[in-house]
Design a binder for these strands. Structure first.
Lengths: 337, 337
DNA sequence: TGTTTTTGTTAAAACCTTTTAGCAACTAAA
DNA sequence: TTTAGTTGCTAAAAGGTTTTAACAAAAACA
């Protein structure tokens, strides 16, 4: 088996070995055109034997489909995008599509650099992720000739976006607490300039009514602690349940309550948001929390960009994927309360 | 400005607009061959004007350098690979090289699939990452004609690997505790089948001598808790310092000590490993810990693969990058103890 | 028999770029 | 004047694949 170039076999080698022309070899391998069943089998057998794999660059150059998609993300460290990205990757690899990872570090210059590189590489589509409310997707994105899918972020109105259903997730948490018979439910959450925080707070308010109280802060454990300080240093009735905007906040809350010898969930039940297992499994007691099904979100986004890149149409707008409630001891089943 | 194909301008368009041949346009843009300064400027100006950018697929096909490298990783959720990957990405983007992310989920079939896709795309090199000691890099990797760099993982003896200097990091921690005057230092760490755990334990033993005691467990907070239970339920002298194999373990240890009203650092000083800030900043008191400089590790790995892919030679073997000690209140400065 | 259809195959064009080799014109040296 | 060298440019090949159009041979039809 001699090789014609650079160590890898080309379709030329296959054709020569099979005693056919390059076009016939191509047709036989791809099942296109008309080929005799016998020659088709022969070509395929030989290709298999010498381990021929088509050069993706050459194919992409000609077909205008690179079978690669790019993912722009501003949050490399976060626990949001990465499980999601792994979901995307899972779907793509099954379709022979590869994923470019572009970490923009919230730097517009870097975002632009990455975007240009992706276009130079003729990617078939782009997934854009960003979590901050004030971080608008780069306007260049809307003018591309390739499809773009937004996750966590909001594109223009006719674009395709996927978000967790924050409102439904919040309702899951609050309704669970209400079923436990809790009537004074407090909401401690993160920064008000995150859209997700506002949506959850709104859903909470609707269910809880006039006694609702939302404490915005940041997404840290420390803030959970501080919020409990505040609540217990002021007069008035204390809550009998706390719905937290993240597992980290919930962890701070739980630790602060334990310091005060308040029993969880007997005196106060606690529910978190994220199901970040490294936190939610390790609080004492373990945390009941809302799971955003990030991997599934990635699957859906992956399928959407695949479809779009093939020219299929996908319903525009924000699709909100349902969250699930993971019940652990910090807010038990109704029967056990 | 009419476009010759698919919406993007090609070098053809540039050449036509500048009234020169394609070759001259190419030479002018790349500074190759001989070109009159005047025409060179003109071509460049026009290219800029119409926003010409060369098609990376065509260029890669011809030059046999795709300016892309692939990263195979088995740990998508972990906090180890991702900061590292972001370091890799930072270096690459500066050199116009893009990064394929391949999450293998510890699945050999998937690893193979990804590897083949990377080769089809003619990547210039591969970075392989894996943290488990028992996870050997796929043997296919050693037979490639493109360079491979290993991070956290161990390649064959003539390969290039980058690791944190676990021994030096452990010494940093232990020597710090010794300078604080602590003499009964205990080491609570993770699974014994992680090479890193063994190396750190070994370095610890050498410094501490006959009183050394290593408790292997797993990498969880829970294990930190459980280990403290064990230590305090048995007879004998108690430690006056604990060196933990991870920040998570340290967090469990700190919580368990606080439950017992043991003062940190007065009675027992605690040092962690990772400087995973979401943990180390939030423990009470905040955690003194070893930082593995993951981003720097990524930088180095990125530079190495870039160099190798250009044909430069890089010294083979395992390069161990120094860790740093981040001092917080769980083990103060000597002066303050 | 002659005419149309079908079948299997192939040469060549196309995708977009870089690079090689060569050409013409001009300059400098002999 | 010839020779040699330099400059600025270009045609053409190359890279590996898919696709189009054409062709010959065989089959079906009249």
């Amino acid at each position: 088996m001699k090789e014609s170039s650079g160590g890898r076999h080309t379709i030329r080698d296959v054709a020569k070995a099979a005693g056919v022309s390059i076009s016939t070899a191509s047709n036989a391998l791809n099942g296109t055109g008309r080929t005799n069943a016998e020659t088709r089998e022969k070509v395929r057998r030989i290709a298999e034997e010498i381990g021929f794999r088509p050069n993706a660059l050459a194919r992409g150059l000609l077909t205008k489909r690179s079978h690669a998609i790019g993912m722009l993300t501003n949050d490399t460290y976060g626990r949001l995008t990465l499980p999601m990205a792994s979901g995307v990757s899972e779907v793509l690899v099954d379709h022979g599509v590869s994923l470019f990872l572009c970490a923009t570090n919230n730097n517009p210059r870097l975002a632009k650099l990455h975007l240009e590189a992706l276009l130079d590489r003729q990617v078939d589509g782009i997934i854009f992720t960003a979590t901050r409310i004030d971080l608008e997707p780069p306007p260049e994105l809307t003018k591309l000739r390739i499809p773009v899918v937004y996750v966590f972020a909001q594109g223009p109105s006719d674009s395709v976006s996927f978000h967790p259903d924050d409102a439904q997730g919040a309702r899951l948490a609050v309704e669970h607490l209400q079923r436990l018979g809790r009537s004074r439910i407090l909401h401690i959450t993160g920064e008000q300039n995150y859209r997700a925080a506002c949506i959850r707070a709104e859903a909470y308010r609707e269910l809880v009514g006039p006694t609702a109280e939302v404490m915005f802060g940041d997404w840290s454990e420390e803030w959970g602690h501080a919020a409990i300080e505040t609540v217990f240093s002021r007069s008035g009735a204390k809550p009998d349940a706390i719905f937290c905007g993240s597992d980290e906040i919930a962890r701070g809350v739980i630790d602060a309550l334990r310091d005060r010898n308040i029993s969880i969930p007997d005196d106060i039940a606690v529910v978190g948001f994220d199901n970040w297992e490294v936190v939610s499994r390790q609080t004492r007691p373990p945390l009941t929390t809302v799971d955003m099904e990030l991997k599934e979100l990635g699957h859906r986004a992956g399928l959407a960009i695949l479809g779009l890149s093939k020219g299929e149409t996908v319903a525009p707008g924000v699709e909100r994927l349902p969250c699930t409630l993971v019940i652990r001891r910090s807010a038990d089943q109704p029967g056990q309360a």
